Computed example of a mutant assay.
Amino acid sequence: MENNYKSYKLKKREKMARGIYKLTLEGRENARPGQFYMLRAWQDYPLLSRPLSLHDCKEEEFSFLYQERGKGSKILTSLKENDEIKVLGPLGHGFEIGNYKKVAMVSGAVGLAPFLYLAKELKKRKIKVDFYAGFQEESYALEDFKPLVEKIYISSDKGLEGFHGNVVELLKSKKIEDYEQIYSCGPNPMLYSLLKLVDPKKTQVSLEAHMACGFGACLGCNIETRSGEKRVCQHGPVFSGGDIIA
């Protein structure tokens, strides 16, 4: 599968918050909001590439927002302008956009990554969007969302900004029944809590999973759903909330 990787030059690396970075690559890609790519900027070690959701996609550049965690992401963070990054994708099943009038996007931590590109597509279709963004500490990467959404509601686990608590607790005080669809992405426990609060059939969730290949061959990201066993990389990462066993 190595031959299917494409090489791009790093245009810019930005630090968005403590441990949170944005990589912008030079080039053109054609992907749907919610799809992901496998990235690598090394030869043999680490063995596995890093799966990252597409953050934004423009005419001549595309970007990824991620949290530095392990060896691979630390290598990505160490890259400099014009360094080469190999990417495989777009992969997986992205967000479905219906004929809605008003929707909500709900993110936890770096789960806001796929929502900038989604917000742009929703704006093009004149769909009104409220964005509920949850953070552990202070917010980041929200400036680009302001011209795209109606309102931004912020929660902070540590009470540093906005609502003191997690984003699901914030939603309990809102009229969530007014939304025709809820798009969500974040830590899986947060998503499972969300599905117990809202109508799962009106919700799309982007799940996190450990991935080795990114295209369904290794069976490393299998999950049990209401319609049987599925692979997060191939059938997801975006699933209908009604199919998820919370």
Score class of each variant (00 low, 15 high):
residue 29 E to W: 05
residue 29 E to G: 08
residue 30 N to K: 12
residue 30 N to P: 07
residue 30 N to F: 10
residue 31 A to D: 08
residue 31 A to M: 04
residue 32 R to G: 09
residue 32 R to Q: 13
residue 32 R to L: 15
residue 32 R to N: 11
residue 32 R to M: 14
residue 33 P to T: 09
residue 33 P to A: 09
residue 34 G to Y: 06
residue 34 G to V: 09
residue 34 G to I: 08
residue 34 G to P: 06
residue 34 G to S: 09
residue 35 Q to R: 09
residue 35 Q to P: 11
residue 35 Q to W: 06
residue 36 F to S: 10
residue 38 M to W: 08
residue 38 M to G: 09
residue 38 M to D: 09
residue 40 R to P: 08
residue 40 R to L: 10
residue 40 R to I: 03
residue 40 R to H: 14
residue 41 A to C: 15
residue 41 A to F: 04
residue 41 A to D: 10
residue 42 W to S: 13
residue 42 W to F: 11
residue 43 Q to N: 15
residue 43 Q to F: 12
residue 43 Q to K: 15
residue 44 D to T: 14
residue 45 Y to E: 14
residue 46 P to K: 07
residue 46 P to T: 01
residue 47 L to N: 10
residue 47 L to Q: 10
residue 47 L to I: 04
residue 47 L to R: 09
residue 47 L to E: 10
residue 48 L to K: 11
residue 48 L to M: 12
residue 48 L to N: 12
residue 48 L to G: 04
residue 49 S to H: 07
residue 49 S to R: 00
residue 49 S to T: 02
residue 49 S to L: 10
residue 49 S to V: 02
residue 50 R to F: 01
residue 50 R to T: 01
residue 51 P to F: 02
residue 51 P to N: 07
residue 51 P to W: 00
residue 51 P to D: 03
residue 52 L to S: 01
residue 52 L to A: 04
residue 52 L to R: 03
residue 52 L to E: 00
residue 53 S to A: 05
residue 53 S to D: 01
residue 53 S to V: 02
residue 54 L to G: 06
residue 54 L to Q: 00
residue 54 L to R: 01
residue 55 H to C: 00
residue 56 D to P: 04
residue 56 D to E: 11
residue 56 D to C: 04
residue 56 D to S: 05
residue 56 D to V: 01
residue 57 C to Q: 07
residue 57 C to N: 15
residue 57 C to P: 02
residue 57 C to W: 02
residue 58 K to H: 11
residue 58 K to E: 14
residue 58 K to F: 12
residue 59 E to T: 05
residue 60 E to C: 09
residue 60 E to A: 13
residue 60 E to R: 03
residue 60 E to S: 15
residue 61 E to A: 01
residue 62 F to H: 01
residue 63 S to Q: 00
residue 63 S to G: 11
residue 63 S to E: 06
residue 63 S to W: 02
residue 64 F to A: 00
residue 64 F to D: 06
residue 64 F to I: 03
residue 64 F to K: 00
residue 64 F to G: 02
